[in-house]
Each structure stands twice: as C-alpha cells, then as structure tokens.
Computed example of a mutant assay.
Amino acid sequence: MHHSIHDEAHLSNRNHWLRAAVLGANDGLISTASLLVGVAAASISSQTLLLTGMAALTAGALSMAAGEYISVSSQADTEKADLDKELHELTHNAEHELNELTKIYETRGLDHVLAHQVAVALTQHDALEAHARDEIGLTDLSQAKPIHASVASGLSFIAGAILPIIGILLLPVQSLVWSLSSLTIVGLALLGIISARLGGAPVIPATARVVIWGVLAMVATSLIGRLFGVAAL
C-alpha cells in the first residue's frame, strides 16, 4: 500500500486561515452585538436597529477583509524580500551560504561532517528552498496568503455579525438588551468550541478565553454605544 510522506494530518496546517476566521467571527459578533445593545438601550425602533445592524455587518466585513489583506500582503512583501536576498546571496556567495546552512544543522544536533553532507545534498536539490525553510522559516504552508486570509476574515465577520441581527428579528422587543447580550454570550461560547475543535485545542480553556474576553469587550463597547446613543436623542 502506498503511503504519502506525511500520513498524519497536522492541525497546525490550518493556522493560516483559522486565525483570520476566528478573529473575524469574534469581531463580527462582538462589535455588531455591542453596537446593537447600546442602540437598543436608547429605545430605538426595531427597523432602525435592523438597518444599523446591516450597516455594521457590511462596513465591518469590508473593513476586516481589507485590513487583513493589507496586513498579510505586508507580511508577504517581507517574505518575498527575504527570498530575493537569499537568492542574491546564493548566486554571489554560494560557499558562505553553504557554511551557514551547515552551522544551522550543527545547532540542531548533527556533527559537522553529517551537517555538511546534509547541507550539500539539500543545496543541490533546491538551495533556495533549503534556506527559506531552515534559515528564514518559510514553507509552503506558512507563507502569507493575502487573498485566503482576506476572504476568511470577511466571511467569518459576516457569520459572527449575522447572529445578533437575527436576534433583532426573533427576540422580544421588551427585553432586547438582555436577550441580545445572552445570545451573544451563547454565540461566543459556540465560537470558542468550534475554534477549539478545528485547532485541536482543549475545549474548556479555549471557550472560556473567547467568552471572558468577548464579554469584557462587549460590556466596554456597549457602554460607549449606550452613552452616545442616549446622548444623540
């Protein structure tokens, strides 16, 4: 039976999109719910709340996607600059780069002779790949992917923001502030569980972290929203 080089699936391979997705969903849920709780405290009509929520969802998703794209693009530019520098050094100072790679393998536990043999073999196979991986720390999995991160961030923001908006339509108007707050806490708990499952992390610590910090952020932003909401009337 044929086996691939890596039969086991490593959950850390998901890091390049999981971070953006969790951050986007968390931000979408907290920021939208906080805004709506603050505005709802000012006794605004349900129709106005719905329009406010949709505006927050649209603007937030676009802002999150654009911000993530710019951030990861900057990281990608830095990685490209490092690769260009390595390529220049390999072209103009190959012996020094070979010695540098040898020393890297020596620090990882190989004796000088074996480290040199490994460095020579990997240099002959793909010198730039060897230096990118072992000197800079870049691999195909870890390289910045702006489009992936941007899309994951924007869509996950929408997924998070849609929950409190649905709440406006389904929850009783008389207790909307407390109902939205409770719904948001439930959403934060679900987000913590999902992110823990996807990342292979312990569920309870991950969920507690998301809920606690999410509630603190929601309380702070909803107080500000309530203050300005009331003051605007």
Rank of each mutant, 00 (worst) to 15 (best):
G192M: 01
H3R: 13
R209D: 14
D77N: 15
P146H: 03
I70A: 06
F228K: 14
Y105E: 07
T32D: 00
V120L: 04
V120P: 05
S31V: 03
T221C: 02
I136S: 06
N26C: 03
L50N: 13
W178I: 13
V215A: 06
V39A: 07
V173I: 14
A196Y: 00
Q47S: 14
S179R: 11
D7T: 14
I212S: 10
H148Y: 09
D77V: 09
V72K: 10
S153E: 07
K103T: 14
L188C: 03
R133V: 01
L18T: 08
V210Y: 01
L29R: 10
T107W: 02
I70F: 00
S153Q: 10
G167L: 03
S153Y: 00
E68D: 01
H125V: 12
E135F: 03
H3G: 08
E95N: 12
A144G: 05
A21S: 15
L87A: 15
S74N: 10
G187F: 00
T207P: 00
A149F: 00
A152N: 12
D77F: 03
H88Q: 12
S71T: 12
M64R: 10
F228W: 15
T221R: 02
S4V: 10
A196N: 05
I224Y: 03
E89R: 12
A66G: 13
I158M: 06
G229C: 00
G28C: 02
K103R: 13
A208R: 12
W178Q: 12
A59C: 11
V113R: 11
Q47T: 14
S195W: 00
S195R: 11
S156Y: 04
I212N: 08
N93F: 03
A152V: 05
L190M: 12
A208T: 15
R14S: 10
L183Q: 10
T52F: 03
R197V: 13
A76S: 13
D77R: 13
L233R: 13
S179F: 05
H6M: 09
L122D: 06
A144K: 11
I104H: 07
I185G: 06
E106K: 15
P164F: 01
N99L: 08
E135S: 07
K103C: 08
G24H: 03
L183V: 04
L49S: 09
I168M: 02
G67C: 05
A66C: 12
H96G: 11
H92W: 07
L36D: 11
L50V: 15
G154T: 09
A149M: 06
A208N: 13
L50M: 15
T102W: 00
N13A: 12
P146W: 01
A94M: 07
A55E: 06
S74M: 09
L183R: 11
Q174G: 07
A61K: 07
L169T: 14
S181I: 11
I44D: 02
M64G: 08
S150Q: 05
G200C: 04
N13D: 15
H16I: 15
I194Q: 02
M64D: 05
H125D: 14
G28D: 04
A127K: 04
I44N: 08
L191E: 04
A206N: 14
I168C: 04
G167H: 04
A20L: 01
V39M: 09
A232Q: 11
T221Q: 07
T207A: 05
L216C: 14
H16A: 14
